[in-house]
Structures are given as structure tokens and as C-alpha cells.
Nucleic acid binder design. Structure first.
Lengths: 342, 342
DNA sequence: ATGAAAGCGCTAACAT
DNA sequence: ATGTTAGCGCTTTCAT
């Protein structure tokens, strides 16, 4: 159990003042280069480490950023986090990460913890059932940058990093229509969330443009879980008028649904064409491979983190951030290709 | 931009001493219940929040635990992290998470950051190429609990949470032998890592017991990436003596390899039976479904976190932890079933 | 270029 | 049951 070395120890040993040691360690220009060297050497020798708490207490900066995600164990989210971690690490920030488990209550608790931990900034992808912005306003009041990514809340003082979900939804539906499907079904999530509402809006725009009336029976709101995939298959099986195409707002759900349909004897894409969302690894493994929307998770993480770091470093203005929209892309695979054309 | 309220403000307003306020806020038994209520009320009213840095500076506890993982964006790791986060959160600990990207150098840097951030404990799954224990000894010296999970380093003062990889490897190989495969190939990772070395050892034990000589051509050391899966398929295609069974220490790699083999016209399991490892979602999506070893990630995360929290709370002794071995299980699916028996 | 000294907000002896 | 007081280790004005 070694004793902890402080700048006072260093100062005493080197017959200098603590102030000089502090300055030297922080590379202050007014300090003689030789003294700096001397101090750095001794510090290394004795295994000195800066006490970040004392430092934070003085400077009121923590070099820590908070991240709240719905779930850690989803392929998409962990990819986003990997991107965030890379950037944060490069800029000397630590990441405090917590999950809301899709519950607003837990998200609220997480936000409070982050607030008390004095994070310098906060990045959030909101839970399934989040209705209020309340739990973030404390950050805004204190000028702590808040940025939402993927599942966002619109707020004049918060950054947003998203893809164009409406366009992606449009492209997906449009593709199914192009493949000759007339009756389409869209399986979506909680419509309070932009990602699902926007994809639905895109779906509806495509339908409208094709002059197909959309009614409520074509929109299935679920929790997009694997179970939901199975029950969607069951529901379709019960329908008198089977759909020709299926657009499901999540790959894992889509894949489970495909499997359930196949078990019931449906052939994909011949009987039913399917399009998913996320480009999850499973989409390339299922037979037939799943047409899906590529979703740049890693880049989203990096971009979101850069935006926050930029704000903190004063590189970017503090008052307002334009929403950042990343490119997404429909990956056409076998699950939706009926024609051999194109 | 509200002003930050301190216990001094509270004390002055309520005509009490800062000490009383501090005690009340920490629910000290010696404080009158009514005073506590009073203080709690006022604190809430004024939006007081404890300054954790001042507190940490005094108590020398951070309520923060560090986690270093090879990669955040793997299904297994994010599942482990989800389990850890749940427990940590329940016990009032925050998580500082970083990834080594499979490099010892980065792992070393991460450990240093954690150390400087004064984490109360550290949980690590080591990188592919980690050779030394050096970067963790600072923690040991200062009596900070260090626990390794999954990819572990043996050290008398560090906890270990693992599965019985040797037995799992044995079971996997044994199963392939039972299905009538004689020539087996084992695709493994860096053998400095217990998970791969142990699985290999189990594989070899099964072979020995079946009186089959194992030679170097049967052991393929790779990085277990998807690319590796493809090149393994290529290598097998070139072999004069094709193997009847394939045991690959990672599902994602196994799945890619299966696909590459199928593209080349091999039928699975008829021509080649395949067993993977991890029970990754892709294993249930590939056709035929992949036989694999179920690996309790969520539970591993929870167990590891409990062990560390237990140490910090003094529930468990500080000096030595028995390795904790979790149950794993061979999930037999179509990719390896040749016989209709059993 | 370096030093002296105050103070960030909290906790924990040690009083009373 | 409550108050007094002295730091925890650092940064930063203001001197020199």
C-alpha cells in the first residue's frame, strides 16, 4: 500500500512551491523549461498521479461525459458506443455509460446521477416511453450541452444526430412496390419515437404516391422484439388478404418473423417480400438474406461525440446546433427481390 | 444559469451548521428526524446537489468502477456490460467503460486513466495480445480490487469469473465425434488467452480419448474474425483430406465460414458438421442453425459486478477470491446433427 | 520565473 | 443532537 504522492511532496523534495509544481505539471508557459523537466522527472520517479477530484473541485470541469442508451446489448447501440468511446478517448474524455432499459423512470434516474456526477456533457438516445423533457432541463439551465442521437427529442438548445428516417422508410416501401407488391404491411414501434414515426411517414408517402390507400390494418405497432416478430407472423397467417410485402422497422424482429413465416410454409420473397432496418449482422446470415436499411452506427457515435466535444472546446457555438443528418442506404438483398431485373 | 447551492447556503438559511446539514443529507443516525426532513425539504426546494468531487476528495471513495473490454460492439460483451450496469446501478456505483480494441497498448492507457480517475474497483477482460500484468499492479499495490472476467489473467490477488472452457471444448469435440466425424479441425484464437487455450485443451482431450492423433494441421490459429471464417473455408477447400467436423471458437466466424463453404457447394452438416461458440443471435438465424456453446453473458456481468461490490462493501474478504465458474451448455442444433438418433 | 495564501465543498474528529 | 474546525489536493490571483 504505497502512500499517495501530492504536489506538496514534490514541492518539498525539490525545494519549490506547490504552485510552481502545479504549473509545471500543467505545462504553464511561465515556468522554466528546466524546472519543468526536473519536476516531470521526479513526478514519474515517485509515481505521482494528479488527484482529479481536487482538480475538478477547483476547475469545475470533470472531463467526463454521460451517455444514456435504451439498452447496451443491441448490436446497433454497442456499435454507436464504440464510436463514441473512440472519439472521447482521443480527446481525453471519460465516458459514464448507463442504460434506461427502455423506461422513462430509469432514464430519469440515470440523468439525475449524471447531473450529480457533474458530467461536462450528455448524450442520450431516449427510451421507448419517454414523454417529457423535464429530466434534461437541469442540464440546459446550467449550460451543459445535451445531444440526442438516433431516438431524439426536439429542443432548440439540444443537438440532434439522426438519419433521414422518413426517406429511409420511403425508400423501403417504394422498393417493395417496385418489386410488384401491392398490399404492404408496416411493423413499427412506439410512434412517440421519431425513428418509428418518421419511417411510418415515409412508408405512407410512398403508398400515397402509388395511389394505394393505407388503413390501420396495415400498420402494426409492436415493441419490435423477437416475440413481436413471431406474433406478426401469426397475425399474417390469420389474414384473409395476405400482404405481398412486409416492412419491419428492426432487423432482429424481421428475422424472427421471417423464420416463423417460413415454418408455416410461406416462401420468401415469393409469397411475401420482407425489408428490415438496421443492417444487423443477422440480416446477412438469414436465408434468404434480408433487405435492410444500412444505419451508420459507428459513424453516428463518432459524429455525436465530436459535436459535443466541439462545443466543450468552444470550436462550435454553444447556443444552437443544427441537426446532423447522416446518410443511410437501402441494402437490397434476396428477401425482397422477386424480379431478376435491375 | 442558476447558482450552485452548497451545504453552507443550506446551513445559513436554516440557521444550522454545515456539519449538521452534511450529516442530515447522509442520513446520519444522530440527527433528529425532524431536522432531517427540514433540511431535505429545503435542499429539494433550492435544487441542491451534492458536489461529488468535494465529497470524493474527503472520503477517497469515488463510487465509480472501471470496466475495460476488448470491444464494446460484440454481442457477448454488450450483454455482459448490460448485466454489470444493472448491478452497479442497484448498488449506487457508476461505470467508467472503455475498450482496448484488442491492443495491449491501449489497454495499458485505459488502465492508467482508470487509475487516475481513482476508480474504486476494476473489471477487465483482457485484449488479444496482452502479455504482461504490469499495468494492473498499481491497483493491487493500492488495494483496489481487480477482477478479470471471461478472458482472464491468473493472479493470486485478482478475482476471476469464467466458464469451464476446457469442458466446453471437450463437449463440443466429443459431440462431433459422436456424430461420426473422424477428422476434426479446430479453429481457435490467440492461445495466450485462457478462453482459447482451454477450449483447445478440451478439444485435445476429447481427441485423445477417442484415440485420434491430433497434429498441427488440425489446429488453425486465427483472429476469429469474419474474414478468418472465409479463409478457413478456402483452406478447407484446398485440403486433400477434408475434415468431417469443424469446431470454431466463435459464432460470427463460424457462421461466415459456413456460408463460404455452402457457396462452394459443401452441404452442412452432411459434408462437414460445424460447432461454434457463444450462442450469438446469428447462430439461430443461419441455415442450418448452428450448434454452439451457450455462454451466460448477462449472468457473467452480474456475477462479476457482485463480486467486486461485495469486496468493496466488506461483505467478502479482500485478500483472495476463488475463481467463479459459471455454467455453460452445448446447444445442439442442425449444423452438426447427422444421425437422427437421440 | 517563482512564491504565498486563499478557497473550491465536503466530512469527521473532537468538542459541547 | 448539534457545532467548531481542520484539512482533503489542487489552482489561481496577487505579490515579488
Amino acid at each position: 500500500m504505497e502512500k499517495e504522492i501530492t504536489i506538496y511532496d514534490l514541492a518539498k523534495i525539490l525545494a519549490l512551491s506547490p504552485a510552481t509544481v502545479s504549473r509545471a505539471l500543467n505545462d504553464h508557459p511561465a515556468i522554466n523549461v528546466k524546472t519543468k523537466m526536473l519536476i516531470a522527472e521526479k513526478a514519474a520517479e515517485l509515481g505521482y498521479r494528479s488527484n482529479t477530484f481536487a482538480s475538478h473541485l477547483r476547475t469545475r470541469k470533470t472531463n467526463t461525459l454521460g451517455v444514456i442508451v435504451p439498452r447496451l446489448n443491441s448490436n446497433f447501440m454497442s456499435t454507436v458506443l464504440a464510436g463514441m468511446e473512440e472519439v472521447a478517448n482521443n480527446f481525453g474524455y471519460n465516458l459514464l455509460i448507463s442504460q434506461s432499459l427502455e423506461s422513462e423512470a430509469k432514464e430519469r434516474a440515470n440523468a439525475k446521477t449524471m447531473f450529480n456526477s457533474r458530467v461536462d456533457g450528455l448524450l442520450v438516445s431516449v427510451a421507448y416511453d419517454t414523454d417529457s423533457f423535464d429530466h434534461f432541463s437541469a442540464f440546459i439551465d446550467r449550460n451543459i450541452p445535451v445531444l440526442f442521437f438516433d431516438r431524439v427529442l426536439a429542443h432548440p438548445q439540444c443537438g440532434n444526430v439522426v438519419i433521414d428516417n422518413e426517406q429511409a422508410g420511403y425508400d423501403a416501401a417504394r422498393h417493395l412496390l417496385d418489386e410488384g407488391c401491392r398490399k404492404l404491411i408496416h411493423v413499427t414501434g412506439d410512434l412517440r419515437r421519431n425513428v418509428y414515426a418518421d419511417r411510418l411517414a415515409g412508408f405512407q408517402r410512398a403508398m400515397k404516391k402509388a395511389d394505394i390507400r393505407t388503413d390501420d390494418t396495415m400498420i402494426l405497432t409492436t415493441d419490435l422484439s423477437q416475440d413481436a416478430g413471431r406474433s406478426v407472423a401469426e397475425k399474417i397467417h390469420q389474414m384473409d388478404q395476405k400482404p405481398g410485402g412486409l416492412f419491419i422497422a428492426n432487423d432482429l424482429c424481421a428475422v424472427t418473423c421471417m423464420q416463423a413465416l417460413q415454418e408455416r410454409g410461406y416462401s420468401i420473397p415469393t409469397d411475401i417480400a420482407v425489408v428490415g432496418f438496421n443492417n444487423d449482422p443477422v440480416s446477412q446470415v438469414i436465408t434468404p438474406q434480408l433487405t435492410t436499411v444500412f444505419y451508420p452506427g459507428y459513424q453516428m457515435g463518432k459524429t455525436a461525440m465530436m459535436a459535443v466535444v466541439g462545443q466543450l472546446n468552444g470550436t462550435k457555438p454553444l447556443d444552437f446546433m443544427e441537426p446532423i443528418i447522416l446518410r443511410s442506404e437501402l441494402m437490397i438483398r434476396r428477401s425482397s427481390k422477386r424480379s431478376e431485373s435491375s
